[in-house]
């Protein structure tokens, strides 16, 4: 029996800026979801688990790391729930509580994406690809042939282009400061 956190829905709703309690399980979100057929659970079930306070089942499942963020669920919800924002919040909670599912490759990509942005002020695609291969060995042989073809066609820029890194650092530091004041 999973641990029940009765405050979960209120917390998620406040953080995501939406009201997860309003779901009445019509399942329009799940019907339109492009990855529902590939995942263990579908969006309406995730919302129900949030209402019930069963965080473990959400974080142990693969749905939040298969969600593409396509916003179909949010667009179609007759109750106006920002379901995609709830999925964002579940990924945020997974990261904050260090409960990111171990075999979730998307989590690794997101992590590298953030690091690249912090380092260069922009996303440095080649570095991200290389680091993903190093930190997620199962990806080692993925797309090697395609990568070579794309490089040959000038679609892979080997060098980073750099944004205003001073402002990026300033913004990240200020966010940490705000979080510190409120924790």
């Amino acid at each position: 029996m999973a641990a029940i956190d009765t405050a979960l829905a209120a917390r998620v709703s406040a953080e995501a800026g939406t009201n997860a309690y309003k779901c009445y399980q019509c399942k329009k979100c799940s019907t339109g979801c492009p990855v529902a057929g590939f995942a263990e659970l579908h969006p309406a079930q995730i919302i129900r688990l949030v209402q019930l306070g069963d965080l473990d089942s959400v974080l142990d499942g693969d749905f939040i790391w298969l969600c593409t963020g396509c916003e179909t669920c949010t667009t179609r919800c007759p109750q106006g729930i920002d379901i995609a924002a709830v999925m964002d919040e579940m990924r945020i909670i997974a990261r904050q509580t260090k409960r990111v599912k171990k075999d979730a490759p998307f989590a690794n990509i997101l992590d590298l994406n953030l690091k690249s942005m912090k380092r260069w002020g922009r996303l440095y695609e080649v570095e991200l690809l290389m680091l993903d291969k190093l930190t997620r060995p199962s990806s080692l042989m993925d797309d090697v042939g395609m990568g070579i073809k794309m490089f040959a066609k000038g679609k892979i820029n080997p060098l980073p282009t750099v944004g205003d890194r001073t402002q990026m650092k300033r913004m990240l530091a200020e966010i940490e400061k705000i979080k510190g004041e409120r924790s």
């Binding site: 992590d111 942005m117 205003d164």
Partner: peptide
């Protein structure tokens, strides 16, 4: 835009709502 920075997609909104808003607003 001189010195433009990352818009935050896809990582920022899955990591921090304030960062996700601040990047494009900047």
């Amino acid at each position: 835009i001189p010195g433009w920075e990352c818009c935050g997609n896809t990582a920022a909104h899955s990591a921090d709502r304030l960062l996700a808003a601040a990047l494009p607003v900047n």
